[in-house]
């Protein structure tokens, strides 16, 4: 596979705590990849490792064929919009564009101005006076004007209202349609990512739980419910992601390459959000409640 990000045995430790463990991962080029998982799962750590803000404790990570932030050529290949889309509050939009042009060798000033105009923003306005949605759009404009091979965005829409969120994703998707760019973005809100991502990485508890093309993930995961059954009685090719039992009924979320033929199951498809939740809950410690939750390693 032609990978824009390739990690092998990657791990990052803060004092005694591992923020990311045993991460082996290939993210394909030319795609929009969603990094999903609960808060504190290690999403920001992985993104910071990818852009070179952090260096690994163990393992390796390659981005666009090189070590993150190893050279100025490498830096030019990767754009990064950090959490809460930071900008310089005291600088005007025009200042931001001048600064970007000065600092980035491949900078596309004409495209940046065009985007700002299309958003209806006044270049003389200071970034500190912009709304959250406008500030996010400015940060995105800067990230795109850099013309990177890979654009990394950390929770870009988390703090935006639904309308600003939609507008932000529209601009991002139009950029993907126009330019050859790979995008890696994180979110703890799966519904934001469902329509924009064609590849997903689910990170729970510092570890990658599942990764793959979204279509493939949706096609290979099913929710089965029916009379109570032991997980051992399921066919060997059905990998249990999540299970819940009452005294009479069992409900499973399984991953399988083949069709579910057993007529005693009622089988329903899963949306990406339910799928991610199944991985999140399936790996959590068992909770004392009914229906009981089983932990399947």
């Amino acid at each position: 596979m032609n990978a824009v990000v390739a990690a092998h045995g990657l791990g990052k430790q803060y004092r005694r705590r591992w923020a990311l463990r045993d991460c082996t991962l290939e993210i394909p080029t030319g795609r929009v990849t969603g990094l999903v998982g609960p808060n504190g799962a290690g999403k920001t750590t992985l993104l910071n490792l990818a852009v070179g803000i952090l260096s690994p404790t163990v393992g390796t990570i390659e981005v666009c064929g090189g070590r993150p932030a190893a050279s100025s050529a490498q830096l030019a290949k990767v754009g990064f919009v950090a959490q809460d889309t930071p900008t310089y509050a005291g600088l005007t939009i025009a200042d931001h564009l001048r600064l970007g042009a000065h600092l980035n060798p491949r900078w596309d000033q004409a495209a940046a101005r065009r985007r700002i105009d299309r958003l209806g923003l006044d270049q003389r306005q200071k970034a500190g006076r912009l709304s959250g949605g406008q500030r996010a759009q400015l940060a995105l404009t800067l990230g795109l004007a850099k013309r990177p091979e890979l654009l990394v965005l950390d929770e870009p829409v988390a703090s935006l209202d639904p309308l600003a969120r939609r507008e932000f994703l529209q601009v991002l998707m139009e950029a993907v349609a126009e330019e050859e760019i790979s995008v890696l973005l994180s979110s703890h809100v799966v519904s934001d990512l469902e329509r924009v991502c064609d590849h997903a990485v689910v990170l729970v508890d510092s570890q990658v739980r599942v990764a793959g093309d979204v279509d493939r993930l949706l096609a290979t995961h099913h929710r089965l419910s029916g009379p109570r059954r032991d997980p051992d009685s399921l066919p060997a090719d059905q990998h249990v992601v999540w299970a819940s039992h009452t005294d009479r009924q069992s409900t499973y979320v399984v991953r399988t390459e083949s069709r579910v033929l057993d007529p005693s199951w009622s089988t329903t498809p899963l949306g990406l959000e339910d799928l991610v939740l199944a991985y999140m809950e399936g790996s959590a410690p068992a909770v004392q409640s009914s229906p009981e939750l089983e932990v399947i390693p």
């Binding site: 929009v32 994703l169 139009e174 993907v176 349609a177 126009e178 329509r195 924009v196 279509d215």
Partner: peptide, 18 residues
């Protein structure tokens, strides 16, 4: 067009192409 669909739905262009 792919661009129209992308603009109206905020959807991944690869999805429309596929």
């Amino acid at each position: 067009t792919v661009k129209d669909v992308v603009a109206s739905l905020a959807i991944n262009p690869n999805t429309v192409l596929k």
